[in-house]
Design a protein around this nucleic acid. Structure first.
Lengths: 210, 210
DNA sequence: CTCACGGATATAGCGGCGATATACGCCAGG
DNA sequence: CCTGGCGTATATCGCCGCTATATCCGTGAG
């Protein structure tokens, strides 16, 4: 920890190697896409040799899984960095839009996270889903959900995932008007307006809502 | 063309080779999945050598594109083989269910058709989309569409694609109740009930509707 | 302090992949 | 009968994921 650490302990060295591999793989993924990530190329960028990667990660799929974990963390952070509307239904709309926006800006990552064939829910992925669950729970707590809680959550996810996949795959332009149509249709069907007294109370608290 | 063709003309021979390659690639895709289709394996099954494939198709991606064309044809056929409900809105529901059903039974093919990164609309793919367009057009012609025609079509496609992708990817079981929830929510929001006199006329024509 | 242990890394190579330069055989038009 | 060119085969390139084997060196027991 002090300046004397000219010879770092082996565990520290090993962890640094591990990080270098993950960083190289992540950079490669972002720059050259999914096909651009090869063990040999990662080795060149991380300054290691293939057996080191296999020692740390097992195989290429496991390495990619770890990178995908980081993607989920970045995905979560993109929501954490912005302040959502206070109205729970408006928060759903806000989340929908930012979900699509993030995915369009990181199509390679989104594909790895949600479009692969195995669909194993990673811990980081479950944390992301938990954020959605909490958003829908807030609507339910306000008495404004018109469908069973889990089903409504799943339905909203599938809606935003549907439009996102079509944009990512290139079938739709990113400004497709159908995106907002799907968003508003699902929200209109799964939620009900706030009761009049709630709306009055909210206006009093917030001034003008966005 | 006659029985004299003991020595087949070169063009016929070549076309037979082309078909053999496509058949081998299609079988391989269905049996071993997307990763199982390799030029060498196709060669073994079709009884040809690599340059022949490259002569006929250019590269592996083009060969796969041709196979995907056949997938769209099979997809279309799955709808052609069944008789849809006469009510245009019920036909949407019927189409939604059969879309999901077909995709769940052919996940590898669905993935190639709709989940790849390039999303080039092939002629066969456009024909499939045309079927959806006609279904929505029928709703519009009955005066029962609540959104612009193209947007409503796109929104319906994205909804069914969303639930399908999540099932295909393994995030949802194929019997997930949210599937019907999404289906009915989108249809409820994008269509309106038939006018009373239309409903009476339809009942008189059809007896009891399904 | 010594030294065997074992975790971490390197060298070299296997089998398979997509793709191709080159060459050959065989049908078609003269 | 030539002969041009299309369709196919041989052989090979460079890259891939992965691993058997060997080496280095920090570490912990004596």
């Amino acid at each position: 920890m002090g300046p004397r650490a000219a010879v770092r302990p082996r565990a520290v060295e090993s962890e640094a190697t591990r990080r270098a591999i993950l960083k190289a793989a992540g950079d490669l993924l972002a720059r050259r896409g999914e096909e651009g990530v090869s063990i040999r190329e990662v080795c060149l960028r991380a300054g290691v040799t293939p057996p080191t990667i296999y020692h740390h990660f097992g195989d290429k799929a496991a390495l990619v899984d770890r990178v995908v974990d980081d993607c989920f963390a970045a995905f979560d952070l993109a929501f954490e960095d912005r302040t959502p509307p206070s109205d729970p239904v408006e928060r759903l709309r806000w989340g929908f839009d930012h979900y699509v926006e993030w995915a369009v800006e990181h199509p390679v990552h989104y594909r790895l996270m949600f479009l692969r064939s195995h669909g194993r829910p990673t811990p980081a992925g479950l944390a992301s889903y938990d954020r959605l669950l909490r958003m829908v729970r807030a609507v339910d707590d306000a008495g404004r959900l018109t469908a069973p809680f889990e089903q409504a959550t799943a339905a909203l996810w599938s809606s935003v995932h549907g439009v996102t996949s079509l944009v990512i795959a290139g079938f739709w332009p990113r400004e497709a008007p159908a995106i907002a149509l799907v968003r508003d249709a699902m929200i209109a069907q799964l939620t009900r307006p706030a009761a009049a007294r709630d709306r009055r109370a909210r206006r009093k608290r917030n001034g003008n809502a966005a």
